[in-house]
Write a protein that binds this DNA or RNA. Structure first.
Lengths: 242, 242
DNA sequence: ACAAAAGTGTTCCTCGTACACCCATGA
DNA sequence: TCATGGGTGTACGAGGAACACTTTTGT
């Protein structure tokens, strides 16, 4: 971080990422906790290099945190109000963590950080099993949190997450995004549970199945014998686009 | 423009506006032609001051061009790829217009302009009759163009307009935006013609009326005697939100 | 044989579409 | 009284929601 020269970045512009994953029937968001004392959780974010496009920048930032590339992502909103408390909060944070910031006193890094930022919000969908969350230098830890049980986020980052969720809901079946969150093969029940987690409401089993099959994007594979005393469900996978 | 100190603006960030208006049964866009020699049409745009939010900035830029304030507007997309030909094109433009740019040689204005920009796209809806388009210092003229008959736009600005139109179509009736484009009172036929202009397709007269009335957002006023030899249509207006 | 859970079919209702008919207006 | 165009009613079909029934699995 400090080794990079911030002159290479577009000034006052950041990319904030809401990384959605799905496991144990719950929709989750990957959120790092910052190293600074005082319990600050902040969305994974980064800056845009002069020689890269904003989508590329988002891909790079995501890869830094998740270890995987070629992730599905989409802009959903720009946050560009003038912050009222941002600078204050940051200065408080710096006061609380003098040891850390002493090391960073190269050039005008502090000045860089305390600027007003315009944040382009992206949301991303990842297969939670393929991700090995990575710490950056400003992270103390990084974990998956249920969307209904988020930690105390800095500034308006909790709002960002909810705006991102709105965008996800609008696009989940119109853009067939489900397969980004599920393993290669899954049962209809798995898919239904995903939908129920995303929309936070129940669906009728039979109608859900009908609706999904009518989309003509699922390929039925073999059966899955679970060992339970009931009919074995079929496995499905998403048809790859032609 | 040159009198403003560009240090007050957020660097490398611009606001591009697609201003929609409606008259003579046609959806139109307000586009200025730049003073520079060589026929350059470019979307109205501007920069974000340090002390203003991005929505405020868009409002200000729109007011500068239209003379009216409190305009409906909405972000629809950020354009942030690294331009391949932007700098080239600008330098060509400068070469073609040495007289104009000589006057602008204060400080690093040229350097400012030839930077890479990230553009936040906004679309706006205005009552075309209330607008008196205004020239800025870099405009030669500013006119309404039919969306189907745009002049040669610089860079990818024509694509911007079509992306904005997509966003408008998605929101026209879900967000009841029609009233921004129509006068206070209008007939059902007026409203239908607006929809047909926006969506570029015909609607059935009776079904359209039913759909609109079912939205419960229209108030029926008196009749409008047109002098024509037929039944007089009702006038409607949008109910103000409670 | 039985319970449990998946698969499938059937009815009902809503909503958009298409067609038909009635009504006011001015010539 | 006629043509013109606005207002309204009705029938049809697609698609979603709610219900019921059948099939498969392991005990």
């Amino acid at each position: 971080m400090k080794s990079q020269n911030q002159e290479n970045f577009v000034n006052q512009l950041s990319i904030d990422c809401v990384i959605f994953g799905y496991s144990q029937n719950r929709l989750k968001v990957l959120v790092p906790k910052m190293v600074f004392k005082g319990d600050f959780w902040s969305l994974p974010s980064g800056f845009v290099k002069q020689e890269e496009g904003i989508d590329q920048a988002a891909q790079r930032i995501l890869e830094e945190r998740t270890g995987i590339g070629d992730i599905f992502l989409e802009q959903y909103r720009v946050f560009g109000d003038v912050p009222r408390t941002n600078r204050e909060a940051l200065e408080k944070l710096i006061a609380m963590n003098p040891d850390i910031f002493e090391q960073l006193q190269d050039g005008n890094f502090l000045e860089w950080l305390t600027q007003r930022f315009i944040a382009i919000g992206y949301y991303a969908l990842v297969d939670i099993n393929k991700v090995t969350p990575k710490l950056t230098e400003i992270d103390q830890s990084i974990d998956w949190y249920e969307i209904t049980d988020l930690p105390q986020m800095v500034m308006d980052h909790e709002q960002h997450i909810h705006k991102a969720l709105e965008a996800l809901r609008l696009n989940l079946d119109s853009k067939l995004l489900g397969f980004n969150l599920l393993p290669e093969e899954f049962t209809m029940k798995d898919l239904q549970l995903l939908y129920e987690a995303v929309y936070d409401r129940p669906f009728r089993r039979n109608n859900f199945q009908k609706k999904m099959l009518d989309l003509d994007v699922l390929e039925r594979m073999g059966k899955k014998l679970t060992g339970a005393a009931n009919k074995a469900p079929y496995l499905y996978r998403f048809l790859t686009k032609k």
